[in-house]
Design a protein around this nucleic acid. Structure first.
Lengths: 215, 215, 215, 215
DNA sequence: AATGAATGAGGGTTCATTCAT
DNA sequence: AATGAATGAACCCTCATTCAT
């Protein structure tokens, strides 16, 4: 099953399409780079101005505060971590349930890995924020629940009825799927490693998950 | 298989047993709390002094630098993240290879979960550091390789020869085991959640891993 | 022999002419005053900010460091302590050797005394630095050797050939000239005394030196 | 004219003879070293304690403040800069006025050079203090006037009556003598140079001064 | 007499933010 | 819209000094 990469980089898109001036765009790009490299707290607005070839004042014209910059960078990323687009695909899946469970697992892994590799910098920043503030992790979880849970639940139900998925509670199943995929993604992000063989990795992880989750 | 909890909290122990004065101990405790709650960069040395009921000068008498404090807190934690004690157990396992693979998985999960719950604060800080600096993650990985890899390799080999473990390369197997356990640990740490049913969780994860990894 | 005062105060000139803002100039002036009055180490950057009617941050905008301020003040002074301008005069002297040795001595004394009186504050600071660090004295001496020695040597040679100057080695002669003039300058600087009758003093010292150094 | 070195190091004597304990003595020695090397302001009391192999508290037992240490070091030196002992010699000179002026100059130079070489460290500190505070230079001058001036005046008078000394006012004569000798001493002190050929230097300077000051 | 842990004021410096130009 | 000089609060850290032991 080949899935076209539906993950469009919202960040770049918003940077490119937005009504931001060239200077403002370069501020965003510089922030992304520096926040990801050195962390939010260790990046000074003057560092950003320097890298963006812009005056310090310009940094504050569009994004009223340093935190405003962070949000401008993180918000689109967050909205994609919870796969809004994938959701459409899930709906589709529910309608024509001819897709094999293992194929689904492979597609899911591939989709998220692609997203991760394409958005390494933002994800690195996101992970830093998650690690720092209690709120972020919970908020992410809640968003996920609100947007995905229902559909995923129904889908898993279907696979369970199919006899392709073990009769465990949905959160338990989700946890194993998520953590197995994370096992490939996190090292890549945390090591600034840009080489992940997505095709093979998604195949591998799907195989393992399938074995572990079949009845 | 019941394993006595061999994980002693090195941090608290060292804080209590060390020749540090009461004030110095309270500095360490305050730093642990604040670094974990607000992050290293957002904790000021004056915050620490205030919480520890101590003058700012005192903070610097023992730990020459704010980073010195961080290391004083992190070093013992790091040395336990790589399960030194587990290593002894592994050696033991290798000698009397009558232990079932599933029991081993359960013991491992339980051991690391216990450690994680007992050292939440430090691990939270460690995760923040991992997220911030490229170096930390690699260093941890290398330490792990140096201390565990050989024994684990031999052990897995044994289980493979036993017919209890699938014939996949060792790093792949390790990745799944680690990430599945992490799937239980990370949410607990990142949410400051203190309620993890270790007995049931370790049972659950062992069951899943066993299914996914048996030939 | 009347010599027009060629000594222009490079410091004030550079302060006035430089592209520094009014605030930055006032920072320099305040530093000059305070360093000279209380010494570098006993002057705090907050003192400087207060005297300059400027925020502490402003002190650091132009001069990245407190030591940077010191150098900004000292560098032009040092370049004049070694009399660059005098050097031109020496060259001239060498060409029209009709100048009497005593007149030369008088001119030299007058030139350096004028310079000293006009740059008391900087010289006070310079003396403090010389007293503090081994390096400074040597560096000054080397600079002097590099810029003056050759010309002075030739000039002295001429006066020796003339029969106006005793046949002592050049360093010995230079030592006496320098220390006799210093005998007038140092008390003025160290006492913050602004009244030095340069005309009479240079006449006096020239007379003494001439007697001591004629064959 | 051979003059026995009447300059005894009052500092060492007071350190040795005083009722100070061994530890206190070592505090003084350490202060002397460090003040001379790095300057008073850049020497911390903890540096002193470390070099003296003593606790920080001990530094404060005898010398109530850091400035107290400075005075303990400087006071004896100051009392010798104004040559109290030489004064006895001057008195003697006045009584049997058979001593040649040039010999007197030589003796004076030798006496002060010896003192300077033997007390380099203290003099370095003294120079730093002179450079820093207006008061010190004046105080030294006044002390000098009070203790020496009368005798020196009478002595110079005698040499003038003798026809060995030019009829210039006494301060002018003193200035030339002092600055010529300083011309040998200062470079030695400021360069931490320990090699001064006192015999030759005093001979040289006496020769020059004699030529410059004879009628 | 001697120790060294503790203090707290103050030091140099950084940095997010503002605002006149 | 863009600049960059200016701000001032806060930061990390040092140090002279004190005092219980």
């Amino acid at each position: 099953m080949t899935t076209p990469n539906k993950v469009t980089d919202l960040f770049n898109q918003s940077v490119d399409d937005s009504d931001l001036s060239a200077k403002q765009k370069s501020v965003l790009q510089a922030s992304l780079t520096l926040f990801s490299e050195k962390g939010f707290d260790r990046t000074s607005t003057s560092d950003i101005a320097k890298l963006a070839n812009v005056s310090e004042g310009t940094v504050y014209k569009q994004f009223k505060t340093k935190e405003g910059l962070l949000h401008a960078i993180l918000t689109p990323a967050i909205q994609q971590v919870v796969p809004k687009i994938a959701n459409d695909f899930l709906t589709e899946l529910l309608q024509n349930n001819n897709t094999d469970f293992k194929d689904f697992l492979k597609w899911l892994a591939q989709d998220r890995m692609t997203f991760a590799v394409e958005n390494q910098a933002q994800l690195r920043i996101l992970i830093q924020e998650i690690a720092r503030s209690d709120g972020m992790f919970k908020r992410l979880g809640d968003t996920f629940m609100g947007k995905i849970a229902v559909h995923a639940n129904t889908l898993f139900q279907k696979y369970q009825d199919n006899g392709q998925l073990i009769q465990w509670p949905m959160p338990r199943i989700a946890r194993y799927i998520a953590s197995a995929i994370m096992g490939y993604i996190l090292p890549v992000i945390l090591r600034n490693d840009h080489n992940l063989d997505i095709a093979q990795s998604s195949e591998e992880v799907a195989e393992f998950l399938y074995r572990g989750l079949k009845p």
